[in-house]
Amino acid sequence: MTALPTKTDRKLGLVIDLDTCVGCHACVINCKEWNTSNYGVPLSDSDAYGAAPEGTFLNRVHSYEVTPEAGPAQAVHFPKSCLHCDDAPCVTVCPTGASYKRGEDGIVLVDESACMGCGLCAWACPYGARELDALAGVMKKCTLCVDRIYNQNLPEEDREPACVRTCPAGARHFGDLGDPESDVSRLVAARGGVDLMPEMGTRPVNKYLPPRVKDRMTQEAEPLPSRTDGPSGFLKWLDSALEAL
């Protein structure tokens, strides 16, 4: 049944630091690489070498410009993937039972063998986290790399989502957001992590850390006194000669 669990034992999710993200898209690429060759059908591309290439991605990086009331605008790179919402509307709309949220860790998954590809879950998601694969005709979404995080065949340092493992800036963090003492929960508390589109009532697990306040000039600085005593020798003669002209 596509009913949501009343509570989940853990709330595994991501914390994305918008202050640190440099917009390199490495998370997008590593996500595609891992998820096209592991859990579920591959993430297909169409017209990959043609005029209008496109494909299925579980994670995409937008870039935004934010302009404050006063002061300069700033660019913010914004990775976006499934937020593994507590009140996931994508799960309850599913007519076939393919979409579900796990009670043990809160991960939202699609059972591709049950999906009929109606696309209603993608309509129900405010975040654009679900994409119907054009080739396979089934719904694809972030699995939080469920096939990595519990995978005993991988070295321990690799047992985190591919996007987190690859991020060269350390802008992505993975952990249990249901435990207030976890590293990710403390990070969210310390940095004022926010929910995306809270007005949609989805109660997302993933949190976004807003960019830190930039350093600002607090007072007008005095210019340093000039340290030159004027030219000497030939240059002094040239200077006075040119002045005299």
């Binding site: 918008l18 410009e65 007005e199």
Partner: peptide
């Protein structure tokens, strides 16, 4: 509904938000 690009990105506390670069140059399912 109250949904704006500011609430969608959580960046509204800083200022007005505008798309600078989409995630890809081509189309997609969404």
């Amino acid at each position: 509904s109250g949904a704006t690009l500011e609430t969608a990105t959580g960046l509204g506390a800083i200022g007005r938000v505008r798309l600078l670069e989409p995630p890809h140059s081509g189309g997609n399912y969404l």
